[in-house]
Design a protein around this nucleic acid. Structure first.
Length: 480
RNA sequence: CGGAAUGUGGCUCAGUUUGGUAGAGCGCUGCGUUCGGGACGCAGAGGCCGCAAGUUCGAAUCUUGUCAUUCCGACCA
């Protein structure tokens, strides 16, 4: 079998039509289904299972840093939303309103939360009094609603699932430290668990979250060369505290403002996994996040003992702590192979009469398609090794892609030329003026600043756009 | 929200130009034969053609509206 032959016609080739490929993979891997309400998808078991793995892993990481989970209401009274000016201005165009309860018109309309800063601030303004009440390091897992104009499964929905963490602190230093701690949690999670390499930094003023003083971001590069803002962590300073009058009495019996942060990661992450690792045969899930790490596929399962042996193997894997399933349906083996690949399950283990005779199984890697014969009594050790190798290989491949699609530019013409030739990140110097960002966007057909890199290089002394003195090295690119 | 396209069984689509009893392949169900890269035979089930008005003796087909999906922009996580 030629290695590059496309096995499944149902999936459009990735390089031929990336957008269609994405839609096909989402459908064929049965991750979600359209609901009939624009921008609201049905999360199917395969898709939701990925979200559950994300939740499980992130939640553990959060709690290791002292986070406590809470749940606050879905509805926000309009008067509460109005309290912080920049915040409401940022979100007003995209909130959905509840105006009636049953037949009765409400005296005050309420919005369905687009994010919950104001709800957290509201409760804190009523409950925080002393420095002994600080810090509050809270998080909630919930869905939010933003009335988006154009929507795509996982990448941009009107309703989407996420976690939103909100914290308040006695000092700005402590709050800033928390902002960076969470940024690093996201970074580690993306790189270690999802095998997705990143560009990390701070947003420019024009890209900042509504009401934030600083917004930190992790940016991943999709296979089509477009950036995806994958998680953000915000430092608000005292803005919300002042708007909501959250004050506490410090050790010296003086009244003082709190300093606030918030940070979030959404189901968009599932889109990132698809677009970073997937190939023409479907999804590829990194072993650490894959809800199912292997499918045991019995070959000629009607023959004596095959199914029993396969189940024995399955149980052995489960006992060793792996997430394994068996496909003992009456489909043909070829069909089962294709399905396992479309679903992105990182490995399959084939076991047929010939294997049993030789006392072995065949482990097949999803990422390289390599077939590895392994003696049955060595399966669990070898399997663990293979999973680790797949995890590493996926990261290395994605890192190579990121490096290959990151270039530098000193002038606007050079940036334009390079981004037209090959989509990806462009590193370039910037003076700090929003007008230059606008100019770059106009001149390049939509390239925006992704972040002020946390690792600075002096590529040039002048801004890529205006030629004035440069302040920062910025990652630029087209984004989702 | 602007521009373009598309809605016909679970999926992919034909049929619409020229109005006249709803089609195919795949999938699904049952039985049998198969089984190391989407197997085969036979027999079946399944659709008031996105929705709503209108024109007409008669509408999947024509008109208007509306909703959804896809792509491209603008906006945004």
């Amino acid at each position: 079998m030629a290695k590059d032959k496309k096995l499944v016609e149902a999936i459009t080739s990735r390089d031929e039509d990336f957008a269609q490929w994405y839609t096909d993979v989402v459908r064929e891997a049965k991750l979600c289904d359209y609901s009939g309400v624009k921008g609201c998808i049905n999360y199917l078991p395969n898709g939701y299972a990925i979200w559950e793995k994300i939740q499980e892993n992130l939640d553990r990481r959060f709690k290791e840093t002292g986070v406590e989970n809470v749940y606050l209401p879905l509805l926000i009274p309009e008067s509460l939303l109005q309290k912080e000016k920049d915040h409401i201005e940022g979100f007003a165009p995209e909130v959905a309103w509840v105006t009636h309860g049953g037949q009765e018109k409400l005296t005050e309309r309420m919005c369905i939360r687009p994010t919950s800063e104001v709800m957290f601030c509201d409760i804190w303004s009523r409950t925080v009094q002393s420095y002994r009440d600080l810090p509050k390091v809270w998080n909630q897992w919930c869905s939010v609603m933003r009335w988006e104009k154009s929507t795509r499964p996982f990448l941009r929905g009107r309703e989407f699932l996420w976690q939103e963490g909100h914290t308040i602190h006695a000092t700005p230093e402590e709050a800033e430290a928390r902002t960076l701690t969470m940024l690093n949690v996201y970074r580690d999670f993306y790189e270690e668990e999802l095998a997705i390499p990143l560009v990390v930094g701070r947003k420019t003023d024009s890209e900042k979250f509504a009401g934030a003083r600083d917004t930190y971001t992790i940016e991943a590069l999709m296979h089509d060369g477009q950036a995806l803002q994958s998680a953000t962590s915000h430092f608000f300073g005292e803005k919300f505290a002042d708007a909501f009058d959250i004050k506490f009495t410090d050790k010296n019996n003086e009244l003082s403002s709190v300093y606030e942060t918030s940070w979030g990661l959404a189901t968009r992450t599932i889109g990132a996994i698809i677009m970073v690792h997937g190939d023409d045969d479907g999804l590829i899930l990194p072993p650490r996040i894959a809800p199912v790490q292997t499918r045991v596929i019995p070959v000629a399962q009607h023959k004596d003992g095959v199914l029993d042996k396969a189940n024995e193997l399955l149980n052995g894997l489960k006992e060793a702590g792996f997430r394994a399933k068996i496909d003992d349906s009456d489909k043909s083996p070829g069909w089962k192979f294709s399905e396992q690949e479309m679903l992105g399950i990182p490995t399959r283990i084939e076991m047929g009469p010939k294997d049993i005779e030789k006392g072995q199984v065949v482990i097949v890697r999803r990422d390289t398609r390599e077939k590895i014969s392994v003696p049955i009594d060595a399966v669990t050790d070898k399997f663990a090794e293979i999973l680790e190798d797949i995890q590493k290989n996926l990261f290395d491949k994605a890192k190579k892609f990121l490096d290959d699609h990151t270039d530098t530019a000193v002038t606007l013409d050079e940036m334009n030329e390079k981004i037209q030739a090959k989509r990806g990140f462009i590193k370039a110097m910037w003076c700090g003026e929003a007008s230059c960002e606008d100019m770059v966007k106009d001149q390049t057909g939509g390239v925006t600043s992704r972040c002020i890199s946390e690792v600075q290089e002096q590529l040039s002394d002048v801004c890529v756009c205006c030629g004035e003195k440069a302040k920062y090295m910025v990652y630029w690119g087209k984004s989702y």
